[in-house]
Amino acid sequence: MPAIGLHPVTRAAIWMSGALLSLAAMAVATRELSAYLSIFQILFFRSACGVLVISAILWRSGWRQIITPDPVSHLIRNIGHFGAQYAWIYGIIFIPMAEVFAIEFTAPVWTIFLAALILKEKITWPRGISVLTGLTGVYLIVQPGSAMVHPASLAVLVGAMAFALAYTMTKKLSRTDTALCILFYMSVIQLPLGAVTAALDWRPIDPACWPLILVVGIVGLTAHYCMAKAMQVADATIVVPMDFLRLPLIAVIGTVFYAETVKPSLFIGAALILGGNLFSIVMERRRIKAAEA
């Protein structure tokens, strides 16, 4: 755990390093497991690990916090999140991992739309610019005019929209429920979803798969935890650029271990998405400060 005496930016960097390594490990372990297991089996085992770990934490911190006044929102959140994870893994298997991560950066863009629809938040002009730059970035990454667009690219794009739904519902649930409560229902609801769908295409489990299954189950939780801790100790304008570093990291991993090639337009598109997100964050904070003055 980062030392309390460290500067907040340093502490955020340490937590984000944990998040980046967790996400990279998740991508590699998922790619390796896909040679042996179906996508639904991977999702099932991830949720099973999550249930065990979170239940152990709740056993010590108290089970009363899983009482929720809004079970329907949990259900909607996790159906969306389950579909998003399926699309993410599908992309990891069939297209360069860097492209998957780049398209995933569009989730905040879609969250703006869904927050306006579900939470009645206004789409201010900074958010509008974020949307425009984000859509431009998507165009550069996916290149819809090309005859070589892989279906997995479109699936990951739809998955990013589903992640946005999950983020929006998380924001709604965070008003009444603890983070552990949200993570608990994430695992508990997605466990039967994974079990039923995995049963339709169950494959024998090679003993060599178990270490990778444990990696997927554990780093799926540590990535969420480290990201949340980074957001607690530093401003989003610091954390978001750090999160962007997972793109070159996974590009290097994809190139070295899987001989993947990445187009320069992918980094340009991702940079546009990042710039739009940061611009929206900075301008919204200035607007709030001006209103409080």
Score class of each variant (00 low, 15 high):
Ala24Lys: 08
Met26His: 13
Leu21His: 04
Gly5Met: 05
Ala25Met: 14
Trp15Met: 12
Ala29Val: 02
Thr30Asn: 14
Ala12Ile: 09
Ser34Val: 03
Ala29Cys: 06
Arg31Met: 05
Ala29Gly: 01
Val28Lys: 00
Arg11Tyr: 07
Val28Cys: 11
Leu20Met: 13
Ala24Gly: 05
Ser17Asn: 09
Met26Thr: 13
Ile14Met: 13
Met16Gly: 02
His7Val: 00
Arg11Cys: 10
Arg31Cys: 10
Pro8Phe: 04
Trp15Ala: 14
Leu23Ser: 08
Leu6Phe: 08
Leu20Glu: 11
Ala12His: 04
Val28Leu: 11
Ala29Met: 09
Val28Pro: 09
Ala24Arg: 11
Met26Gly: 10
Leu20Ala: 12
Leu33Gln: 07
Ala19Gly: 08
Leu23Pro: 00
Ala13Gly: 10
Ala19Lys: 02
Ala25Val: 05
Leu33Asp: 12
Ser17Ile: 01
Leu23Trp: 14
Arg11His: 02
Ala19Met: 15
Thr10Gly: 04
Gly5His: 12
Thr10Ile: 14
Ser22Tyr: 04
Ala12Thr: 01
Leu20Arg: 00
Ala19Asn: 14
Met16His: 06
Val28His: 03
Leu33Thr: 05
Met16Lys: 08
Glu32Ile: 09
Gly5Arg: 13
Val9Asp: 05
Val28Tyr: 02
His7Ala: 05
Met16Ile: 07
Leu21Asp: 10
Ala27Asp: 14
Val9Thr: 11
Ala25Phe: 14
Ala19His: 10
Val9Arg: 06
Ser34Ala: 15
Leu6Glu: 01
Leu23Gln: 13
Leu21Ser: 14
Ala12Leu: 03
Leu23His: 14
Ile14Gln: 06
Arg11Asn: 00
Leu33Cys: 04
Ala24Trp: 00
Ser34Met: 09
Trp15Phe: 15
Ala24Pro: 06
Gly5Ser: 14
Leu21Cys: 13
Ser17Met: 12
Leu21Phe: 13
Ser22Val: 07
Thr30Val: 15
Trp15Cys: 07
Met16Asn: 03
Thr10His: 10
Glu32Tyr: 08
Ala19Val: 02
Gly5Lys: 06
Gly18Phe: 00
Met26Trp: 15
Trp15Ser: 07
Ala12Gly: 11
Gly18His: 11
Met16Cys: 05
Ser22Lys: 10
Met16Val: 00
Ile14Lys: 03
Leu6Thr: 03
Met26Gln: 12
Met26Ser: 07
Arg11Pro: 02
Val9Gly: 01
Ala27Gly: 10
Leu33Tyr: 07
Ser22Pro: 11
Thr30Ser: 15
Leu21Pro: 01
Gly5Tyr: 08
Met26Tyr: 15
Arg31Glu: 11
Thr10Leu: 15
Gly5Asp: 09
Val9His: 09
Thr10Ala: 15
Ala27Lys: 07
Glu32Phe: 08
Thr30Glu: 14
Ala24Asp: 12
His7Gln: 07
Trp15Pro: 04
Ala25Gln: 00
Leu33Arg: 07
Val28Ser: 12
Leu23Arg: 05
Gly5Gln: 03
Ala13Arg: 00
Ala25Ser: 15
Met26Asn: 15
Glu32Ser: 07
Ser17Asp: 05
Ala25Arg: 07
Leu6Ser: 08
Ala27Val: 11
Met16Ser: 06
Leu21Arg: 00
Leu21Gln: 01
Ala24Gln: 07
Ala19Pro: 00
Ala19Glu: 14
